[in-house]
Simulated assay, not measured.
Amino acid sequence: MASSLYFLLLLFVFPFAALLLALAVLVRPRPERIPLKGRHVLVSGGSSGIGLALARRAAAEGARVSILARDRSRLSDARETIRLATGVDASVIAVDVRDAEGVARALEALDPVDVLICNQGVFVPQELDLQSLDEVRFMVDVNLMGTFHLIKAALPAMKKRARETGIPASIALMSSQAGQVGVYGYTAYSASKFALRGLAEALQHEVVADNIHVTLIFPPDTETPGLAEELKRRPEVTNKIAASSGGMKADKVAQIALNGIKSALFVVPCNLEGVMLCIATAGMSPQPSIFMAFREVLGASLMRLVGLCFQWSWFGVIKKWHTEKGM
């Protein structure tokens, strides 16, 4: 009897143990720790919301913090908030991320960046056929091109510093759960955020030899000034679809994001739905975590089924809304 139980246990455990062993060999890039104490952390969109919460937490861990945004007055207020909370005087950079030359000049005046957090973002929700192309360009220019401008300006000095010190550096991109799945009313926004994934995957290949790790963060709706503005314009159908999703506090998202950055994770979900989306959309992404890779391999088929259930529900909401409106 005991031998039979032992055999059954071995039969059950062995495949999982073998998979874990295989993943320990396969995962790339290799797991790392990104230290913050005494290092230069630059946060774009750092004057409010998630960006300010990230800057405050990094300062509390002993980092030298710089915050970048357009509004000098809001930057000054954010700097005072960080100083009162941590005793750290953050550097402030007032520049529009859409201005490539302005961003380059601003970063040239700073010490080399060790951890670059591209957190800036704008969102104007609306159906594409009703939305102006100026608003579409605005989102693409800030969310996508602004990220290119920041990385291009920071990368040469980051590479040199990482090589000289031997200490790993980080580039983190703030995407969105709308950068994992398209939703009604988010056509332009989702396009700008989906693009960050391609940027991140290719960039990780290009900088891995320089000891730089790329992190892609996927927050859900987060209680920020930006969300308050978004809700004023969000289409009715979008509100119905989003009603089942819970929001998060900016500080909680910042805590999860910063932990992911320090662990050099490639993808960082922020809640249970985010974990499910990361499993469902893992695809060909790098994965430095053995246990996250294990979860992705085992959960991919199930999460595809769950995803189809969500799509069934969302299409039902859309059909019902159009029927009620007589469209």
Rank of each mutant, 00 (worst) to 15 (best):
W314H: 06
V253F: 00
V306W: 08
L308Q: 13
L308S: 14
I212M: 15
K240Q: 15
A191T: 07
L203Y: 05
L116I: 13
V65M: 05
E80K: 05
E61V: 10
R30Y: 04
L26A: 05
T215E: 14
D221S: 06
M284E: 08
S132M: 12
T224S: 07
F315L: 07
V275M: 12
T86I: 02
A162D: 07
L227W: 13
V92Q: 00
S48A: 15
G49E: 06
G299T: 09
S73P: 06
A24C: 07
L150M: 06
F291A: 14
A191Y: 00
L10I: 08
S176V: 08
E223R: 06
V183T: 08
M276T: 14
I241T: 14
D77V: 02
P225K: 10
K193I: 05
A94K: 07
C309M: 08
D77Q: 01
E127P: 13
F194D: 09
D77Y: 02
V95R: 04
P125I: 00
R57S: 12
K249C: 07
P288K: 02
A282K: 12
L20H: 01
L75Y: 04
I151S: 08
A100I: 15
S244W: 00
R163S: 14
F218R: 04
A169M: 07
R137V: 05
D99N: 04
A242F: 02
A254P: 11
Y189N: 03
A55T: 04
Y189I: 08
M158H: 07
L227Q: 12
S285L: 05
Q287M: 13
L5M: 04
F148M: 01
F315T: 10
P125A: 06
V13C: 04
E127H: 09
K319Q: 14
L302F: 14
K152H: 10
T147F: 00
Q180G: 10
V136K: 01
R74H: 09
G260R: 06
V97A: 03
F266D: 03
D210V: 06
E206G: 08
E164D: 10
R39I: 03
L227C: 11
T187P: 14
G246R: 00
I318S: 03
L26V: 07
E236D: 08
L5A: 03
D71N: 15
S313P: 14
S175D: 11
D77E: 05
R56W: 03
L227N: 09
K193T: 02
S285Q: 09
L155W: 09
P235R: 01
T86V: 01
G283Q: 05
R64A: 14
H205P: 09
F266P: 10
M158E: 12
G62H: 02
P286V: 02
A53I: 12
D210M: 01
P156F: 03
E127R: 10
M284P: 09
